[in-house]
Structures are given as structure tokens and as C-alpha cells.
Nucleic acid binder design. Sequence first.
DNA 1: GCCAACGTTGGC
DNA 2: GCCAACGTTGGC
Length: 137
Amino acid sequence: MTTQYWLVKSEPDTYSWDQFVRDGRTDWTGVRNNAARLHLKAMRPGDEVLYYHSNEGKAVVGVARVTKAAFPDTTADETGWVAVELTPVAPLAKPIGLAQIKADAVLQKMELVRQSRLSVSPVRPAEFKRVLRLGKA
DNA sequence: GCCAACGTTGGC
DNA sequence: GCCAACGTTGGC
């Protein structure tokens, strides 16, 4: 299967990219939205994930990889919610801010912009490549 | 099954 | 702090 691309959001006050790097890997738990759950379930090991800081930061700050497909989220009160395992790959040399995304002809179509409240969203290959290119030093 | 009320997220 | 967008809940 070809690599799919995603974006996950986290408030840096809650779980920052730096903490993620220190941990070396993390279980992406706590998703309690059905659309986001469907995206988690569609993730496959090897898929690449943009890591976005919401609220404070409002920028894509790094790239991660899916290292374990969806499994039950044990932090949930009800059954049926899932988590995936993510592992950090590399930070962006230059974080890509939301304002820059909205000003870019390619990136302004991202689900991140279209559905701003969704915490896990798909990313098109062209969008992923453009973020990487703009994020290079 | 509709819709008003309410809660949450997240940008500004 | 405000508000728009969206999801969920519950009365009818």
C-alpha cells in the first residue's frame, strides 16, 4: 500500500513536540470524535504525519511516522475509541504557521483549514510535500 | 426525526 | 475574552 499522509493536532501545553521527541514514541490517545476516529483507523504503519501545535504556536512543527496501526484506547471510558502509535521523525527547520498555510495556494485547501476543529485529518501528497519543502532551512 | 440548547475547540 | 464552527444531547 502506498504511504498515506495525515496531520495531528496537539496543544503544546498538553503534549508538545519536544515532549514527544523526549519520549521517543507515544500512543496517540484521547481522540473522541468520530471523524477523527475513522482517520485513526485508516492509518497504516509507515504513514507520515504532520505534527501541528494548536493554540500556542499554531504551526506545523515536525514530522512523525505511524509505527502501530489502530488499537483500543485504554484511556477511554467507553469501548470503541482507538489510538495509534506515533514516532517522531524530524522537526521542521522552519515551522509552517497557520497564516502561511492560509496564504499558500496549495496549502489553503488543507483539511486543517477547511475543518479547523478536527484533531486528526488527512493530508494530500502535494500538501505534504509542500510543507516539507517550505519547512526546509 | 427535527431542532434548540449547550459544550468544546481553536483562531483571532 | 469573544465568537464561529461543529458535535452532541434531549425535548417534543
